[in-house]
Structure formats: structure tokens, C-alpha cells
């Protein structure tokens, strides 16, 4: 994961990276281990969070569309990017630009 490579940059900026996937905990955990992900990764198996953020099943696959939300400490969404296909995701550099 490219995100992992730049994770330190996010931490330097005082931000935390939190990843979610509509998948069981077991697959989330094994992905986390196999890819050496050190940021938070959560199982949103029942897609409650993906639904609340409006990204569930956007691509008609019963999964979350690839998406990024930059959230300020007061809960304001500073920036969001919602992918239009499974490979449409912003790079870490692009996300970093939008950190407060």
C-alpha cells in the first residue's frame, strides 16, 4: 500500500490515518498483517459507516467505493474524494495537501 509508505508524513502532520473496509474482521486483520499496515484499519462488515458516509455500493458491488475524507478536529469534512471506479483513488501526496 502506497499509503503505508507515506504514513509517517501523515503522522508528522499530526493526522491519523484510519482505513475501513466492508469485509469481515478476519480479512481486515490478515490484510493488515500481510501488507504491514501500521495505521488503524477497521472492519465495517455491516457497512454502517460506509453507508453513513454515502460510499456504500456506489459502484454496485455491495462494497465501499474507494474514498477518502479529511476530517478536521471539529468534525468538519475538509476534503473528500470518492472514486468513480475501483482504481480511482487519490495518492497520498494529494491527500496530504488537504490536511489542515
Amino acid at each position: 500500500m502506497k499509503l503505508q509508505n507515506r504514513y509517517q508524513k501523515f503522522q508528522d502532520a499530526g493526522a491519523e490515518v484510519v482505513a475501513l473496509a466492508v469485509a469481515p474482521r478476519s480479512s481486515v486483520n490478515s490484510t493488515r498483517k500481510s501488507l504491514g499496515i501500521s495505521y488503524v484499519m477497521l472492519s465495517d462488515k455491516k457497512h454502517r459507516v460506509a453507508s453513513a458516509y454515502g460510499v456504500y455500493n456506489l459502484l454496485g458491488d455491495n462494497l465501499a467505493a474507494p474514498a477518502v475524507f479529511v476530517i478536521d478536529t471539529d468534525g468538519a469534512v475538509l476534503w473528500q474524494y470518492i472514486g468513480k471506479n475501483p482504481n480511482d483513488r487519490p495518492g497520498p501526496g494529494q491527500i496530504l495537501e488537504h490536511l489542515p
Binding site: 486483520n29 458491488d61 477518502v68 479529511v70 476530517i71 478536521d72
Partner: peptide, 26 residues
């Protein structure tokens, strides 16, 4: 993973959060 509960508002007390939805695991 590893126990405990993640709560967004709690995390935000420590700084901004980048929430990333993965379409797939792995």
C-alpha cells in the same frame, strides 16, 4: 483489531483524521 473500540470523535481529540475506505481488502 487487538481489542478496544475505535471512536471517531475520540480520535479527533488528538488531531485530524484521514478516513480511507478501501474497496477491497488485499
Amino acid at each position: 483489531a487487538g481489542g478496544g473500540t475505535f471512536t471517531l470523535t475520540e480520535q479527533l481529540k488528538q488531531g485530524p483524521v484521514v478516513l480511507v475506505f478501501f474497496q477491497k481488502c488485499g
